[in-house]
């Protein structure tokens, strides 16, 4: 195991470093040995596969015959461009991303504000709100697939009490299914983001609030004019993380249908890009096509993150 051999290597290099007589300066070649495990593992299993995906995407590779790959140039990308299900998956990913992220982050901000009050049972509330985050995405999706069940699901039962007709969440219209899937994402991540906002709120200097109070602003005005501007970098951070997460959404659409297929609903109502990629590679055995999808997703993520950053910078300049 590399885990065992690395410290031994450290020992050797640090002795060499110790022989140098610069007693005051804590610097040595040993430092490279300390950081090398991270960069070695990251390079081998993180960066290299990501870059090599681009190379694979220019080949035709079959899952059943991995050692045989044929150079086909940009053909995989051309095929992607003409595939209606790719565009469908892109649309679904973007729309699910918006309806799962925007309400979630707004609610998280409000919750963080409430959690920041002086109160009894603060730890209880924080831990309770983090329970969905600790639940795996697989378990959460299976549970919500039951709750959203058409015939015996609790949510339809409850809506029926309110006079709403039974809804086919798992295989109904695009809109219904995507709302249900976004509910899973929102349930899992709202508490986590609330804690991140709470942490940032607690580092806002109290003088700002005192000054606002002297100026006669009420709680809501303080929230709007002090808290939210101070939280801007944190909000941007959570938006970027949520965007990256939403672009890779896989388990929810894969397991929500409960039919074991990779279609994302009978009419692909909620097939996301990640699910489409999985389908290309592991259902249709076209690994090259899947790699082309992955690189396209990477490109889209980079563009979206840049747009996020530019928007945030523009807004803070105006503000």
């Amino acid at each position: 195991m590399t885990a065992l051999s690395e410290p031994a290597h450290d020992l050797r290099t640090t002795r060499v470093g110790a022989r140098r007589k610069r007693a005051s300066a804590l610097g040595s070649r040993a430092a490279y040995a300390y950081v090398s495990p991270f960069f070695l593992v990251f390079g081998a299993f993180g960066l290299y596969p990501l870059i090599y995906t681009g190379w694979v995407s220019l080949h035709s590779v079959n899952l059943e015959n991995l050692h045989h790959s044929t150079w086909i140039g940009l053909h995989n990308y051309v095929a992607l461009w003409h595939n209606e299900f790719f565009w469908n998956a892109l649309r679904n990913t973007l729309s699910i991303g918006v309806i799962s992220t925007v309400p979630q982050l707004c609610m998280a901000l409000g919750l963080a504000h409430l959690l920041n009050y002086k109160m009894r049972g603060r730890t209880f509330f924080r831990v309770a709100m983090l329970m969905p985050y600790a639940t795996s995405v697989v378990a959460a999706t299976l549970i919500f697939a039951q709750l959203f069940g058409r015939d015996y699901g609790l949510i339809n039962w409850f809506l029926h009490l309110l006079g709403v007709h039974h809804t086919n969440w798992t295989n109904g219209t695009r809109w219904q299914s995507q709302v249900a899937i976004s509910a899973i994402v929102t349930w899992r991540w709202t508490g986590y983001n609330a804690l991140i906002y709470l942490a940032a709120m607690q580092s806002i200097p109290s003088e700002l609030y005192e000054a606002a109070a002297i100026d006669g602003s009420n709680r809501w005005q303080q929230f709007r004019n002090v808290t939210v501007p101070a939280l801007r970098p944190t909000i941007l951070f959570t938006i970027v993380l949520s965007t990256i997460g939403a672009m890779q959404m896989f388990a929810e659409p894969y397991l929500f249908a409960g039919d074991g297929t990779t279609n994302g609903g009978g009419e692909h109502q909620y097939q996301t890009l990640a699910l489409f990629m999985y389908q290309q590679g592991w259902t249709n055995f076209h690994l090259g096509q899947a790699a082309a999808t992955a690189w396209t997703m990477l490109l889209i993520i980079v563009v979206l993150v840049c747009i996020n950053a530019a928007l945030a910078r523009g807004r803070s300049r105006r503000g």
Binding site: F38, F42, F45, G46, L47, Y48, P49, L50, Y52, T53, V56, V61, L66, V240, I244, M247, Q248, F250, A274, G281, L287, A290, A291, A294, W295, M297, L298, I301, V305
Partner: peptide, 22 residues
């Protein structure tokens, strides 16, 4: 190191799969 936090590892699974298959 910090920059790598933004890299989605899920998009590198195909070469990773080829690697572990090999």
């Amino acid at each position: 190191t910090i920059a790598t936090m933004a890299i989605p590892p899920q998009l590198g699974v195909i070469p990773l799969f080829l690697l572990i298959a090999k």
